[in-house]
């Protein structure tokens, strides 16, 4: 049995990338993840892929969660995955949500995005996905 000090919550960097002020969804997700026992670092609006990856590395995060409602998801998601490759940090999982048409989801998954959640997703669905993905880290 692990002692209390040994339990290390999964750390998740959440960000809004690009010119996109829709931050309601990401804030709701942040609270849900905190309540599920995750440590959430929200970096705020208007982030570049470089800023997000830098934050994830400094924060020793295992996951990057992007929220995009601007229509630029086909460039921004792959740009973050690419930046992780460049920084040799491909062990960091990228997932996200926002306004993303069904057809684009498959294409983004092919480009290395682990999972995407669109409007109306129950928050529990996001938590369940993370628990499956990080069975030891979650409590």
């Amino acid at each position: 049995m692990a002692t209390k000090t040994a339990i290390r919550p999964v750390r998740i960097v959440l960000a809004k990338v690009g010119l996109d002020g829709h931050d309601r969804g990401v804030k709701v997700v942040a609270r849900a993840l905190r309540d599920a026992g995750y440590e959430v670092i929200y970096t705020g609006l208007r982030q570049t892929p470089e800023m997000v990856v830098d934050a994830a590395l400094q924060e020793d995060a295992q996951v990057i969660g992007l929220s995009i409602h601007s229509g630029a998801h086909m460039t921004l998601f792959p740009a973050v995955v690419q930046e992780l490759k460049r920084r040799k940090a491909t062990d960091i999982v990228v997932f996200g949500g926002g306004i993303i048409p069904e057809d684009d989801i498959a294409a983004l998954k092919e480009k290395g995005v682990a999972e995407l959640f669109t409007p109306g997703t129950p928050l529990q669905g996001i938590v369940d996905w993370l628990r499956k993905r990080f069975p030891e880290g979650s409590r």
Binding site: P9, R31, R34, D35, A36, G37, V40, Y42, R139
Partner: peptide, 12 residues
């Protein structure tokens, strides 16, 4: 949170 162990680290 003392209950879930989770946190929103909002200083950054």
């Amino acid at each position: 949170s003392p209950f879930t162990g989770g946190a929103i680290l909002g200083d950054r």
